[in-house]
């Protein structure tokens, strides 16, 4: 099921303006992403945790998400310590572990998790609908916003369509397996989903034409920027600048 699990809530961050949250998250994420010292990665991780607490994200789904996010870092922990090189090589039993490799893996793990928490606490606490409006206010092309909102609007419907097809295949004794027959069936299910989506898109388009659609879709302003939003933005700008340029002065 496709759903916005973090979008509902009434924390301070949930109520903040989506446009402000997107800019703040982008600035923070960039300042952490480009940093190459362990201190910055650590600071980013702490900021992520603080924001997640501020947004009162529910811990169980968040933990599950963090697990998926860390699948790639796991791959790094497996490969980098063995191949990282560098002078300081620790010998652990029969294996030689590169300290440079371990440091790089740690750095990336902290950064990845920190930025993920920031993105979840800031933009992901708004609904996709609200974010679309926010992006419109950030002057992104209207066509792109329309694409985003419509894609999201029909996501669950098309997912249900696919599931219906999958169920009827199951009723006809289709079992998923590694075989040409199974792959052909999946191919046909996807093909049918595409055909139905296309047919639906023609109907939607005609229905919109009947309502005077000329490429513009009026978006009602859901929110106005409040003083609190500007404080949030200011705080994030200061933190991001400190992370990005602080090391130059220290």
């Amino acid at each position: 099921m496709i759903s916005e699990i973090f979008a509902t809530g009434d924390s301070l961050l949930h109520r903040a303006d989506p446009a402000i949250k997107i800019i703040s998250a982008l600035l923070l994420a960039l300042s952490i992403a480009v940093g190459s010292s362990l201190e910055i990665a650590m600071a980013g991780f702490v900021i992520g945790i603080l924001l997640a607490i501020m947004a009162r994200l529910s811990p169980v789904p968040l933990g599950r998400r963090l697990l998926t996010v860390n699948l790639f870092t796991l791959l790094l922990w497996i490969t980098l310590p063995l191949t990282g090189g560098g002078e300081n090589v620790t010998i652990l039993g029969p294996m030689e572990l590169s300290s440079k490799g371990i440091a790089l893996a740690l750095l990336i793990t902290l950064k990845t998790n920190g930025i993920y928490l920031i993105l979840t606490a800031l933009p992901a606490t708004s609904s996709v609908h609200a974010i679309g409006h926010g992006l419109e206010r950030l002057r992104l092309p209207h066509k792109l916003i329309l694409l985003l909102l419509t894609t999201y609007r029909y996501l669950s419907l098309i997912e249900q369509e696919y599931k219906r097809l999958r169920r009827s295949a199951a009723l006809r004794c289709f079992k998923a397996s590694t075989s040409l027959h199974a792959y052909r069936t999946y191919g046909y299910l996807i093909g049918m989903t595409l055909i139905r989506s296309y047919a639906r898109s023609r109907r939607v388009h005609r229905a919109m034409l009947m309502r005077g659609f000329q490429g513009n879709f009026p978006l009602l302003a859901l929110q106005t920027i409040r003083p609190g939003d500007l404080w949030l933005l200011a705080a994030c700008v200061v933190v991001a600048l400190t992370l990005a340029f602080g090391p130059v002065f220290w």
């Binding site: 329309l146 694409l147 419509t150 894609t151 996501l155 419907l157 098309i158 989903t193 595409l194 023609r202």
Partner: peptide
Amino acid sequence: IMETALLSSAFFVASLI
């Protein structure tokens, strides 16, 4: 626009399979 959007959602769904 609508065709692109709905095919885009269809591909999103397909990528979950």
